[in-house]
Amino acid sequence: MNIVQARILAAGLLLGAALPAMAHHGTSVTYDTSKTIVVEGTVTEWAFTFPHSQIYFDVTGTDGKVAHWGTELAPSPTMMRNLKLGWGRDSIKPGDKLKLTCNPHRVAGATACLSKEIVINGKLMPLNEAQVKP
């Protein structure tokens, strides 16, 4: 798996989504919600805990070095369950292939980010109603 280079979106594109997220969890002070990056890796742990579910995963760089990453999912486990799409403690397993779009951490070099879109083994796992396909 390779690190896919950061894609910098136009400032303000995600503004509408950023402010409510901040209001609930203070995420904007931790992450730069005006930017997104895409990372791909192999899942090592799925922490389905309230209120901040987390995925930990390993990312192999182009130089062959493995970096350990983590991401938080904004919706709580119960909110994810309410999407009725199979989110649960078994929905992600170690070894699964993850393609993640997320807001980067404000600390330079930190390998943690805020999930915006999660694809597990090629399947989109929606994080909100807007990502649920009709």
Binding site: T49, Q54, A67, W69, E72, T78, V107, A110, T111
Partner: peptide
Amino acid sequence: DENAYCVASEEGRFNRLIRDGEVG
């Protein structure tokens, strides 16, 4: 939020690894 509790061990690990950015 039914029966959801702030658990110090869970919250502490989450804060350190994710929010503080020390996971790697």
